[in-house]
Design a protein around this nucleic acid. Sequence first.
DNA 1: CTTCAAATTGTAATCAATACAAAACGCAAA
DNA 2: TTTGCGTTTTGTATTGATTACAATTTGAAG
Lengths: 138, 138
Amino acid sequence: MVNQNLAAVLSAHGVRPTQQRIAVFDYLLTHHTHPSADTIYNALSKEYPVFSRTTIYNSLNTLLEAKLIRAVNILADEQRFDGNTKDHGHFRCLSCGEIYDFDISGDMLQGLCPSGFLGEQGDVFFTGHCPRCLPSKS
Amino acid sequence: MVNQNLAAVLSAHGVRPTQQRIAVFDYLLTHHTHPSADTIYNALSKEYPVFSRTTIYNSLNTLLEAKLIRAVNILADEQRFDGNTKDHGHFRCLSCGEIYDFDISGDMLQGLCPSGFLGEQGDVFFTGHCPRCLPSKS
DNA sequence: CTTCAAATTGTAATCAATACAAAACGCAAA
DNA sequence: TTTGCGTTTTGTATTGATTACAATTTGAAG
């Protein structure tokens, strides 16, 4: 049972495994689309009868504090969320708006951090055009 | 005369050099503090009699389009701006809140961009603790 | 079953950023 | 210098994501 496992993961990180938190966590682990809080709200509202927008924010913040998910600040106007907590970069296509993951080794990332500073988290963002949209650009 | 030079730079980039735009541009070139729009507004309001908040946003967006300044999305709740358009990374200290610049070679940055993608802009963000705040952390 | 702290909910509030229309500006032609 | 017109500035109103808060509900422990 997937939810059983997720509940166990939450408990192991000191987060009480409520239905809502499990649903949000599950959504982020199965959808690699870097959704916004509102996107998650709309998706979960269809499955569950009542699901408050505030609870989505609460759950996301709780999961963030437990470091079970990550926030992606590649957009200026809204936050995006990512269930993938391994080191990786993000690429946003200006044509289609899609946000892609790409690999970055932890060593590579550490090597970028300036000496004397203690980096707890590193992010690499690119903005441009993805392979699918490139051909249509002249 | 500094403002003469700034006006020329704006004109060369197709931006009409108004007093307000020059003042915003000048502020970003002389203050390497990655200020928010509101910080710029408060600072300039003291020097100039009238200076609308909206004009700050307009000027910033105009300068951004002309690629004379850059936006820094290292914070989730507000945008920061940077007069330094050369390739460099940003480090935000969780203790003092300061945002530091650090060097990253253009080649290094290009090397991070996944193959097949055309990256127009790259950003490297770190969050952690700066050398000044590290000693006070046990 | 009872209890009590923690989680959820809905509404109201906050705050950065934008839309919009009127007024002011600035350059170019006469 | 004056006129005309497109651009810029300004202030207010609005949007939209996120948070504050207080009442209600939940869920685990005794």
